[in-house]
Amino acid sequence: MKYFAVLLPTIDAEKSAEYRSQHLDYLEKMRNDGHIFANGRFTDGSGGLVIYTAQNLEQAVRYVQNDPFVIHKARGYEIHEWDMVLPGT
């Protein structure tokens, strides 16, 4: 399993507010299905970060493109494969 850090910069604040509950429901489903390692918003209001677990980049892209924020163009996205380093490793 690989990790993918996904930046979700705000494109449209009104759409972000409108689709927030759908986005959060989607993240909860993905987390419950074991596809999210961590997620959260940026405190400056510029967007958020989701760290997905996926077999490959193509799968991670599919996850991101099914997010209501992305579908409705409330947020853009930038994906980076992430090589996590834990303390002591």
Rank of each mutant, 00 (worst) to 15 (best):
E58I: 07
A60S: 06
V70R: 00
D33F: 01
P87G: 13
S21P: 03
Y3E: 02
I11S: 01
L86C: 11
H35T: 06
F42D: 09
K73G: 06
G34K: 03
E78F: 08
H80Q: 13
Q22G: 07
Y19C: 05
D83S: 14
E14V: 05
A60D: 03
K29A: 11
E14T: 05
I71L: 04
L49T: 08
Y63S: 04
V6R: 00
L8F: 01
H72L: 04
D12N: 13
F37W: 13
R62C: 06
N32C: 08
H35N: 14
D25W: 00
S46F: 04
G45H: 10
Y52G: 05
W82Y: 13
D44T: 10
L86A: 14
E58K: 09
V6M: 01
A17I: 08
G34R: 01
M30Y: 04
L24V: 09
L57F: 15
A54D: 04
L7H: 11
E28R: 07
N32R: 11
V64E: 05
Q65V: 05
P9M: 01
V6E: 01
R20L: 09
D25S: 13
D25F: 00
N39S: 15
Q59V: 08
A74T: 02
M84Q: 13
L27F: 07
L24E: 10
I71Q: 00
D33G: 06
H72S: 05
S21K: 10
T53Y: 01
Y19A: 05
A54Q: 02
W82V: 07
T53G: 05
A5M: 14
R62S: 14
F37P: 06
K2S: 12
K15L: 08
N66S: 14
S46P: 08
R41D: 14
A60I: 02
K2E: 13
K2W: 01
T53K: 11
G34F: 02
D44A: 08
K15P: 02
